[in-house]
């Protein structure tokens, strides 16, 4: 989902920066609130950041004969909310843009919107919706992480199609082209991301029940399905 440096026309690069900046400002406020209210959550916050740091570095071969990477943003979004994750995800993208020429500064607004904003928001809503409908927390976590990953790449396809509509067929033809590159490649990776997120969730459930209670993700009485 990294749109390479300089590969968005200036007007679109600015547009996505303008869209992204308010989320980052709100995200910083959200992070400050979380850490001020419960300083002991900083460690868990570091874990959520590290998870997206690792996963976005892993380029995994896929069924289409190309390689792509997970995003790792679903876990943090479920734990701390999508706004907090927007900051952490953007930091990861900034690191890759500066040191690896992967993505870029001009395209950071667009890349942050797909990976650090759209993905986490989708994860957050999918988690709560699935949890309410099925009552099964692990399925909710799996779907949240996997679908957030897929959506991130669909947003990237939309961004590219908006900036580069095809001479014949316009936006839709371009979108089909870009989504064709990203979407099917991403399906097995999305499943992998879902599985890895459930793996970390299992550890958290075993060892950090205190923190998860603070975040209202589990209740004092374990295995209770009623959420407030």
């Amino acid at each position: 989902m990294h749109i390479m440096e300089g590969y968005l026309p200036a007007s679109w690069a600015i547009f996505w920066w303008v869209v992204t900046l308010p989320f980052l400002a709100l995200g910083l406020r959200s992070l400050t609130r979380i850490t001020q209210a419960n300083p002991e959550l900083k460690l868990l916050l570091a874990l959520a950041g590290a998870f997206t740091f690792v996963l976005s570095a892993l380029k995994i071969p896929s069924v289409t004969g190309s390689s792509s990477h997970p995003t790792g943003t679903g876990l943090g979004a479920v734990l701390f909310g999508p706004l907090a994750m927007s900051v952490l995800g953007t930091l990861v993208l900034l690191f890759q843009a500066l040191l690896m020429a992967h993505g870029g500064l001009t395209t950071l607004g667009a890349n942050a919107f797909s990976m650090a904003i759209a993905g986490p928001f989708a994860a957050y809503w999918i988690y709560h919706l699935t949890k309410r409908v099925t009552g099964k927390q692990k399925i909710a976590i799996f779907l949240a992480a996997a679908l957030a990953n897929l959506l991130t790449y669909i947003i990237t396809s939309v961004q590219l199609a908006l900036a580069f509509p095809a001479p014949v067929g316009g936006f839709m033809a371009s979108f089909a082209k870009f989504a064709g590159i990203f979407a099917i490649t991403q399906v097995p990776l999305a499943i992998s991301e879902g599985l890895l997120t459930v793996l970390v969730w299992n550890w958290l459930q075993s060892y950090t029940s205190h923190e998860l209670e603070l975040l209202k993700l589990i209740q004092g009485e374990p295995q209770s399905n009623e959420s407030v």
Partner: peptide, 28 residues
Amino acid sequence: AEFNGADGQAEAAIGEVQPGYEPWFQPV
């Protein structure tokens, strides 16, 4: 298969949709 990065393939696709496009900013 060569297992090239999907990001790079998207870059190539931009070249197909808009053949004259030159990136206007270089990585730092």
